[in-house]
Amino acid sequence: MKIAVCAKTTGMDAQADDRFGRAEYYVIFDTETRSSETFENPAKGEPAGAGGSAVRFISQQGAQAVLAPELGPKAVDALRAFELAAFRYTEKKTVRETIADFLDGKLAKADVSTTKSKHGLRRA
C-alpha cells in the first residue's frame, strides 16, 4: 500500500508538515517495497480549494491513505469521494518517524465518513 505524508522538505528525513492541503511536499511511501518518492504539492498556492485539489493529486499518484496533521472540510469531502483513508499525527516528527508511528498503529484514523462541524472554520 502507498501512503502519502505531508512534508516541509523532500525525502524521508524531512519534517512532517503541519498543514495538509497547503503542505509543501508529499512523500509517498510504499509499504511493500519500502521505497519512497517526493512530490511537490501542486495545490499549495491555490487561492481556494487546495485540500480537494491535493487529494486528487495524491490519489493520482496511487496512494490509498494519507497521514496528515489536520484536515479541512473540503479535504474531508474529497478523501471520502476518492476513497482514501486518513490518519492523524499530532507530534512534530520527521516523515520517517511519522510513518513508523503509523506502521506501529499509533496514529488515530480520521473519520471521513461525514463532514463534521469540527473540521475547519466554515461550518464552525
Binding site: 495545490a43 491555490e46 487561492p47 481556494a48 480549494g49 487546495a50 480537494g52 485539489s53 487529494v55 486528487r56 490519489s59 473540503k74 469531502d77 474529497a78 469521494a81 476518492f82 476513497e83
Partner: peptide, 18 residues
Amino acid sequence: RYNAILPAKKKVLVYPEL
C-alpha cells in the same frame, strides 16, 4: 481553475461555493 469540480473515484465532487 478554482478547484470547484473534482472528478473522484465513482462520482464527481462539486464545491458550489468555489
